[in-house]
Amino acid sequence: MSNDVDLSLLDPILKKYQSQEGALITMLQEIQAVYGYLSEVVLTHLSREVKVPLSQIYGVVTFYAQFYLTPRGRNIIRVCRGTACHVRGGSRILEAVEREVGITEGETTPDLEYSLETVACIGACALAPTMVINEKTYGKLTPKKVMESLSRKDRKEREVE
């Protein structure tokens, strides 16, 4: 697998932030945008190029919730765990999603179809409880609506294929 990684995609990013103190997080964000996640090969290469120990990079990557060391699913489901959603039954929504896609929070399905995450608040509190699938926000959810939106999504995709 490591052989397939095209490390030359890193070059423009390395060049852009050359000699910029403190650009590590921004670089990691851009690298993740290119590769989808941060693999060991890529991080090792980055470490050598920017002369920052791999241990230190690993420390940063694992500190922030938005960095991923493993590939993520094609569809990202984010269930809001904000206070407004919680008060209006958000935990039941998360359970319904978990039941529907068969994975728990923080996991990705083996076929890389779905990743399930929670977010602290998406700021659409008036629509609580909410979840976001890829870019689309689903509001005023019930466990039943969750089942419908997820199965509809599946159906649609199967038709496309």
Binding site: G82, C121, G123
Partner: peptide, 11 residues
Amino acid sequence: EGDPGAFMDRS
């Protein structure tokens, strides 16, 4: 702004 249930800074 990270507090769940607060979105004024964003707005």
